[in-house]
């Protein structure tokens, strides 16, 4: 009985959670005139015109491609650099370790508005404006610290005896890291990859400042419709629905790592 009540509450929460997204889906399948004129719980005449426009107009679909490219680069850079660093923070004591650890997080604390100008200047100086790598690097500013923090938490949960045993068994550091350690923290890596992907995907200000046309992200393409005369709600909703898809795929792939956790009892 208790379990049933709990499930009921959870289902109720998920229904509330899905309502705004359902509303977006509903709008994306209707024409703009229909959306603005009548209140309707479901689309009476389903139209895919909004989606067709996005898939056929290069200024729309290239936004998705650009976003996916720089987000992927960013996630890879963040994970590759953060894994050894998080290991160092969780296992070693070295000069300035705690200061360094906290300093990393301070990079998420700067209000973007004024920092955008020097950011633009800095990346111009290096000739990186309007490239995918520029946005990927800029997003490292907040994703790498986050990745280090999350991974450090997971790694600290693993007893140090495991490392010691592996070294005695003759593993080198890279061998130990890849063969023994990574499988143990895979749920942490899954969670971290998802968060890096997500924060880079939804960030708009930096991505918009550092790009003009070649690497313009989808979120910036969408603001263009907002400023146009009279909002095309249907088109915007369709674009919004499509922004959810790549992230949903990512979480689908990492879900097992998150759900299973790691069975430490086996080791």
């Amino acid at each position: 009985m208790k379990i049933k009540k709990r499930n009921f509450a959870l289902v109720f929460y998920f229904i509330l959670l899905m309502l705004p997204i359902y509303w977006m889906l509903n709008m994306s399948l209707r024409t703009n005139a229909d959306i603005l004129s009548t209140f309707s719980l479901y689309p009476k005449e389903i139209t895919f015109a909004n989606y067709m426009k996005i898939f056929t107009d290069p200024s729309w679909y290239s936004g998705y491609i650009n976003s996916i490219i720089y987000v992927s680069i960013n996630t890879v850079i963040s994970l590759v650099t953060a894994l050894p660093a998080a290991y160092a923070f969780s296992r070693y004591r070295f000069i300035g370790d705690s200061q360094m650890f906290f300093w990393l997080l301070t990079n998420r604390m700067a209000p973007a508005a004024v920092f955008l100008l020097p950011f633009f200047q800095l990346y111009s100086t290096f000739g990186l404006i309007d490239t995918h790598i520029a946005v990927a690097l800029a997003h490292c500013l907040f994703n790498v610290p986050l990745a280090v923090w999350i991974l450090e938490g997971f790694m600290s949960g693993i007893p140090k005896e495991i490392d010691e045993t592996a070294y005695i068994d003759g593993y080198s550091f890279p061998g130990f890291f890849a063969m023994v350690f990574m499988p143990l923290i895979r749920s942490g890596v899954g969670v971290t990859a998802f968060f890096c992907f997500m924060f880079s995907w939804v960030e708009l200000l930096l991505a918009r400042t550092l790009t003009t046309t070649e690497a313009k992200p989808i979120a910036a393409t969408m603001t263009r419709t907002v400023s146009a005369t009279g909002l095309d709600w249907g088109l915007l909703a369709a674009a919004g629905i499509l922004t959810i898809v790549p992230g949903a795929l990512v979480i689908w792939f990492v879900r097992n790592h998150m759900a299973k956790g790691f069975a430490m009892g086996r080791v």
């Binding site: 959670l17 959306i35 995907w201 907002v226 909703a237 919004g240 879900r255 097992n256 759900a259």
Partner: peptide, 24 residues
Amino acid sequence: SLSLVLIALPLLIPWNVIGTIWIV
């Protein structure tokens, strides 16, 4: 699996789009 995917959906929407959805 289903709960994990569903619960993550709001996080994946760009922030300006979140505001726009809520306007409507």
